[in-house]
């Protein structure tokens, strides 16, 4: 009798998957090219999203996570631990909760790797089907974010590399600043259509381009 039921929820290659935005139709006026856009919106679908729980005060836990993921465990709200080249990031969600994002299809291997090195009281939960990532770039992104979240997105409060969760429109989102003019929103699947169309609508006045 096992303690946990772990299995790879992705089908063998060739399966047809749909992102949370597969159903969404763009209804706002968009501009013809990214160069003309104040905001460029792009979905990064199908990445692996894992919720990691554990004790930040436990040295072995911290070391294990770093060993498994190759980036250090962030110990306070804000700074994102990220290796862009490998597509791996860890975000502090709470004193005992982190969001791990890995490239598409890597979530099961990552979970196994974590379980190999971790022990004691911790948890890893796969939420890949329940979230997606929107990337926003361009000169007007900050204005769009200001129209959407009460969190202060000014560079003095929101330097590159910061990640927070907050209210977004009438829902919520994780907001990550990954480069000077590039931001990510991690949003829940069921709210994705609402939030995506909200972002497009808020961006329309600046000129919005939808990139694939």
């Amino acid at each position: 009798m096992s303690d946990l039921s772990i299995f790879d929820v992705n089908p063998a290659a060739g399966a047809k998957s749909e992102s949370p935005l597969a159903m969404t139709r763009v209804t706002v006026a968009t501009v013809a090219s990214p160069a003309k856009a104040g905001v460029v919106v792009r979905e990064h679908a199908f990445q692996g999203h894992l919720i990691l729980r554990g004790r930040a005060t436990d040295d072995q836990f911290r070391a294990g996570v770093e060993q498994a993921l190759g980036v250090p465990l962030p110990l306070k709200m804000g700074p994102l631990s990220r290796d862009e080249a490998r597509g791996v990031s860890i975000q502090w969600m709470s004193p005992d909760e982190w969001l791990v994002i890995v490239p598409a299809g890597r979530e099961f291997a990552t979970e196994n790797r974590l379980r190999e090195v971790l022990s004691g009281h911790y948890a890893v939960m796969n939420v890949s089907g329940g979230q997606t990532v929107l990337e926003l770039s361009g000169p007007a992104v900050r204005d769009v974010l200001m129209k959407s979240t009460p969190y202060d997105v000014h560079p003095r409060n929101f330097p590159v590399g910061k990640a927070v969760s907050s209210v977004f429109a009438k829902s919520s989102a994780i907001i990550r600043r990954v480069a000077e003019d590039r931001w990510e929103l991690v949003i829940r699947r069921s709210f994705a259509d609402y939030l995506y169309r909200w972002v497009l609508d808020a961006s329309e006045e600046f000129g919005v381009y939808v990139a694939s």
């Binding site: 919720i51 909760e97 939960m125 939420v127 329940g130």
Partner: peptide
Amino acid sequence: YFNSVTDH
């Protein structure tokens, strides 16, 4: 530990 997997 608990976490929502409603959307997953």
